[in-house]
Design a protein around this nucleic acid. Structure first.
Lengths: 341, 341
DNA sequence: CTGAAAGCGCTAACAA
DNA sequence: TTGTTAGCGCTTTCAG
């Protein structure tokens, strides 16, 4: 049923096999325009028999339309991003748009390369994580003339539009909640943040809100690489050894917080009576840990759906987004590691 | 610096801005053929000033070459696949090939759609998870005329070539190791497997090897959805309640095994003295758990690198792969939950 | 080293 | 309802 030589099949092959003009074959295959039932069937049959797969490259060039949406994210290993992807996919599946993922590894230069590469395929829109980009990247995005949605973060000025949460605010809220419970001697553990702007902003908001109440971080520790769970244990052990008087530990993500929790329990420390802990939502791993971890929802899925919706609307309607920035509100869950009994 | 109207920039714009023919501009931008240093600089300057991004669609159509490799996987939420992706990316970054990910959600129909969609962009190669595909998918892959590497699994016949492990064998090895330690009353917990062929094959290999020694699974339980950690706890609790005499629990992945571990420890059960447990490698989460979980390495990264290497070689050399099937050997780690003391 | 001409495989626009 | 014509923006090929 497949062609014998190695040349890929073209519309012309289907046209010849079915005795219908290329143009009409094209219409059948795209469900465009009126085609008689008889012709349609002839064409579909021929196409199927030959095993014809349309060439979107030629189609895109001719129609000046590409049903691709570039999604540019820092990493796939952080569960946050697959979850955002789910949201994006869920919405785009209702349209004829398709997400295409590019990964930057948190490196601005790589972001630039990936962006360039993706834009060169002339996608219909771009969804890109973060508000911080190189000048060149920003220039490319502006010049692209397509809808651009920056996601995850709203602390800054978007190129076009943005959907996310304020990480600075998230940090502040957490700090306030901790102080309100009476904790005073607070340690922080998180990833090295030079390139993770959202983690940095959370940290800044956190320390800022503490400072407002005259409290300073008692100790802090940053890590990079390795198993987050193991790191959480390790850093927690080290920090408690340095300062056994700490009564709260704030972690930059749930995974290291989980490690910390296991370590505290191992040491027989009462959570949250003796030491309270909290993370920041990366994972739904939480269900099933010995304690329900206090954390803050990053609205991952919703960010994905909202961002995709903006792109879909703009592609369909051509209209500008009504709101330039959609700031979602992360929900603080106290779990049972933050509320003092 | 960007163009004023909305029309995307073309080679012609760069040509006009630099006073060099389109052809020569094209050569400069692709580093092809000899171009004088003076001309090259003029062109690059003009391209940069304008913010020109080449149109790969037109380029691909004209050159009949696309530097894309389609990677088709069931899910991004299972940590296995991001790890395979890392391996693929690491190798492809050394070439000018680019991976493009498609997700099937373990659904054959969706696999078919995604494959069709990706093939219509005429990629240079396909890396696709599993050996089980619909007839239509197989036909498309065969007819595509491009290198196809099926990954993860080697229990079956590949369309073109394959890199993976034998999950049947992995299941058998685990069963043998468990029996060798003297465990006798074995329970199994895992995902519902109608569509996860690799989990199914592991289970089949497992029961088969037990049967050979006259042992039958004492109890089994399947789940779908939800937090794996919580499910692991839940199923473990239920199963132990049903049959408190169980002395070993085999889990189809490390995440539910971790949940099981936490549950057993909560119940004050001695691992591995009273009850041994083992998982199957999905995650490096393992470091940091209270016990080092017995598991079996699925060779994720290596599968990715080997698969990408095959594609890269075939694209570069055009030669057929020397071996059609590369079977890697998963390593069994006993951790401290399998070896009886 | 540089340029001109001829398509790549499809679809928009128009004609029949 | 169907067919014809003329490109889309680039690269191949060949000529200078």
């Amino acid at each position: 049923m497949s062609n014998d030589d190695t040349r890929p099949l073209t519309l012309r092959d289907v046209s010849e096999a079915s005795g219908v003009s290329e143009m009409t074959v094209s219409r059948v295959l795209r469900n465009r325009g009126d085609v008689s039932q008889a012709t349609r069937e002839k064409v579909l049959e021929a196409a199927k028999a030959l095993g014809y797969v349309p060439n979107k490259i030629a189609g895109a060039l001719a129609s000046q339309r590409v049903n691709l949406v570039a999604v540019i994210i820092p990493s796939l290993r952080n569960m946050v991003f697959p979850e955002v992807m789910s949201g994006i996919s869920a919405v785009l599946e209702e349209t004829d748009l398709q997400p295409v993922v590019g990964v930057t590894d948190y490196l601005p230069e790589k972001e630039e390369r990936v962006l360039y590469e993706m834009l060169s395929w002339r996608p219909s829109g771009v969804i890109i994580a973060g508000l911080e980009h190189s000048e060149a990247s920003k220039a490319m995005l502006k010049a692209s003339g397509i809808p651009v949605v920056e996601i995850m973060d709203t602390d800054g000025t978007p190129i076009d539009s943005a959907v996310g949460i304020s990480h600075r605010r998230a940090g502040r809220e957490m700090a306030k909640a901790i102080l309100k419970q009476g904790y005073q001697r607070i340690g922080f553990m998180g990833t090295k943040m030079p390139l993770d702007h959202r983690a940095r902003k959370r940290f800044e908001g956190f320390t800022e809100a503490l400072a407002k109440e005259g409290v300073e971080i008692a100790d802090q520790e940053f890590y990079s690489g390795g198993s987050a769970l193991a790191k959480g244990r390790e850093l927690t052990r080290a920090m408690l050894k340095r300062d056994p008087e700490l009564d709260f530990l704030y972690y930059s993500n749930d995974m290291i917080a989980a490690g910390g929790m296991l370590e505290l329990l191992d040491q027989g420390i009462d959570i949250p009576g003796q030491v309270g802990i909290a993370g920041f939502n990366g994972v739904e791993l939480l269900q099933g840990l010995p304690r329900q971890l206090a954390t803050m929802d990053a609205c991952r899925t919703e960010i994905g759906t909202k961002a995709a919706q903006i792109i879909a609307d703009r592609v369909a309607g051509g209209a500008e987004a009504t709101e330039k920035v959609i700031e979602l509100t992360p929900k603080l869950s106290f779990g049972d590691t933050l509320k003092r009994r």
